[in-house]
């Protein structure tokens, strides 16, 4: 039943669109050619928008030194920038990876049960929790960092990986709760109720029915919490005071903080630090698209 209505609606809209265009410029092969023209225009926009990304890759493949101007094309790719980047920032990349994975684990462990409670139980106070999550987005990171610094100093969490995992999750947890909850809202309660009637306890129903059903939203939330923690700069900057624990974002900042005389290794580090974003955009496009719209509007 539902399928038929959907097809008939899309059918309607398609003829409607065609009709609107038709009145303007007649029919025939024209729309097709015009469409490829739009594609060309879109590629042009994309080229402008992604030029900085191209430039980063291009500059990372240039030989060292500032005297030479970066050439427009990496005709003779030189990998010394990458060699320097890996020897100087390899450890920082590893630190970032550990912190980001830790933040994903912590964020999902906290957000998934909370999202379930908010979506399914309708517990008293759920509205307050949701409101608090929205308000939390308004609190500037510097305010959080300012207070955390003093608390971390007392607790000995400065310059520690657990400290950064906990702090970085502040970027991800509110977002993860919202996105998983939005998904769980659409989950049929009857499935969970059936499981409960069959005698499954709360925790078992959650673990073996709710979580597998919400797989897609968990992946989306996990990918974004990874990106958030990986990109974190503020907490890396404020909650570390030594070189003991140094995420790569802070490594890049240190590079560009002083006078830069070796842009190729800075750009090589930047490329390495962009890999997660690029990989996710290409390999997990479906989830990324779900996250961008879901998180903002719902």
């Amino acid at each position: 039943m539902t399928t038929t209505t959907i097809t008939s609606r899309t059918g309607l809209t398609r003829t409607g669109r065609g009709g609107r265009k038709g009145t303007g410029r007649g029919s025939g092969p024209a729309p097709d050619r015009q469409n490829w023209g739009s594609t060309a225009l879109a590629i042009f926009f994309l080229a402008i928008m992604l030029f900085p990304v191209y430039w980063m890759v291009n500059a990372s493949l240039q030989p060292n030194g500032t005297t030479l101007e970066t050439s427009w094309l990496p005709l003779k790719p030189d990998f010394t920038g990458y060699a320097t980047a890996i020897s100087e920032q390899g450890g920082n990349l590893g630190t970032s990876l550990v912190i980001s994975l830790g933040s994903v684990a912590l964020s999902l462990a906290i957000a998934a049960p909370a999202a379930y409670a908010l979506a399914y139980f309708k517990v008293r106070g759920a509205g307050i929790v949701l409101f608090a999550i929205l308000i939390s987005q308004m609190i500037p990171g510097i305010v959080v960092a300012n207070a955390l610094y003093t608390a971390y100093n007392d607790l000995g969490l400065l310059n520690s990986i657990p400290g950064l995992i906990l702090a970085d999750s502040a970027h991800g947890i509110p977002f993860a709760i919202l996105i998983i909850r939005a998904f769980m809202n659409g989950m049929p309660a009857s499935v969970i109720e059936a499981a409960r009637v069959d005698g499954a306890g709360h925790i078992r129903a959650f673990w073996s029915i709710v979580l597998p059903l919400s797989r897609n939203s968990l992946i989306t939330a996990g990918l974004f919490t990874f990106l958030f923690a990986w990109s974190d700069f503020l907490f890396a900057l404020t909650l570390t005071t030594t070189e003991a624990v140094r995420p790569v974002t802070l490594g890049i900042f240190q590079y560009i903080g002083a006078y830069v005389n070796d842009w190729s290794s800075v750009m090589a580090t930047a490329v390495l630090a962009s890999i997660p974003a690029i990989v996710l955009l290409v390999a997990a496009q479906k989830y990324i698209a779900a996250g961008t719209t879901g998180g903002a509007v719902k």
Binding site: L50, P52, M56, L227, F233, L280, I288, T292
Partner: peptide
């Protein structure tokens, strides 16, 4: 086109 938004800001 989403790429600029996904890159770490410091990058």
């Amino acid at each position: 086109l989403l790429l600029p938004w996904l890159l770490p800001l410091i990058v």
